[in-house]
């Protein structure tokens, strides 16, 4: 009975293809029960270091049978869903499947075609191993290496691009700043020159009223037989306005 239970524990289980399983707490999702606990521990430590040190999130996934969507699609879906790092890789294997393991990988800012080529080359090297388990172990190691290289190269190139961009931007800002300063200076100069021209070349100077001024003599327009003044028509009447104000205030009083 104990043997049966033990055997039962070693029997894998399958997952529902229509449901994406949750990310495993470790880097290994082994429903097919293909790896031993020791193997899992060993791999887990190394994959955890890969994530911590190199930002590459690698998963080893087994299934009892091929998923309905196909190994590649399934592996890619898992990788895109589970990934916590800029670069991810999923090594998918159905124990006993003559086609062997499948690798899918991708990285932020990495050319997908280049990634696919790189992991294909890595997989080819890994397939030289003698048995499937060694091949899978070699696969994640080889893929980690190439992805590490590509990720580092991308960072370097991105940094270089960013640095260059900053440099160019700095130059541009500096140029723009100087352009603005020169523009403002030119406008100011034009205004000053225009003012100077107004004063000197048009021949007009604004004269202020002198402190003491004598009006010139004029020929008087004597009229109405008056000796000193012909009178004036400048009058003002505050009476009508006062009446209007009174009427308005009376109206306001009546309303209240």
């Amino acid at each position: 009975m104990l043997a049966t239970v033990a055997q039962a524990q070693d029997i894998g289980f399958d997952v529902d293809d229509s449901v994406i399983p949750q990310r495993p707490p470790s880097h290994i999702f082994d429903p097919a029960k293909w790896l031993s606990p020791d193997e899992e521990d060993r791999i887990q430590n190394e994959l955890a270091r890969e994530l911590r040190d190199h930002e590459i999130d690698i998963y080893i996934v087994t299934r009892a049978k091929q998923p309905v969507q196909g190994a590649k699609t399934y592996a890619r879906t898992l990788g895109e869903t589970w990934s916590r790092a800029p670069v991810w890789c999923v090594i998918f294997y159905v124990p006993g499947d003559p086609s062997g393991f499948h690798v899918q990988a991708a990285g932020l800012g990495l050319d997908p075609a280049r990634v696919n080529r790189a992991v294909a080359e890595a997989s080819k090297r890994a397939r030289r191993e003698m048995n499937e388990k060694d091949r899978v172990m070699a696969a994640w190691s080889e893929c980690a290496e190439v992805l590490r290289f590509m990720h580092n190269a991308r960072d370097l190139s991105v940094d270089a691009v960013v640095e260059k961009q900053n440099e160019l931007r700095g130059e541009w800002i500096s140029k723009e700043k100087w352009k603005r300063i020169i523009m403002v200076g030119l406008i100011g100069l034009v205004v000053v020159l225009a003012a100077v021209a107004y004063y000197f070349f048009t021949g007009r100077q604004k004269k202020k009223c002198p402190a003491v001024y004598h009006f010139p003599d004029t020929a008087w327009r004597r009229r109405y037989q008056a000796p000193f003044s012909g009178g004036g028509g400048v009058v003002a009447n505050s009476r009508h306005k006062k009446e209007r104000v009174t009427v308005q205030s009376e109206a306001a009083e009546k309303e209240s």
Partner: peptide, 28 residues
């Protein structure tokens, strides 16, 4: 409440009626 301005012959030549009318109105 009436206001009027009467200038002599000599100074009237230099007084614009409209401006001085306005000055009277400002007193109202």
């Amino acid at each position: 409440g009436l206001l009027s301005l009467t200038p002599g012959y000599a100074i009237e030549a230099f007084m614009d009626d409209a401006d001085w009318q306005e000055a009277l109105k400002m007193m109202v």
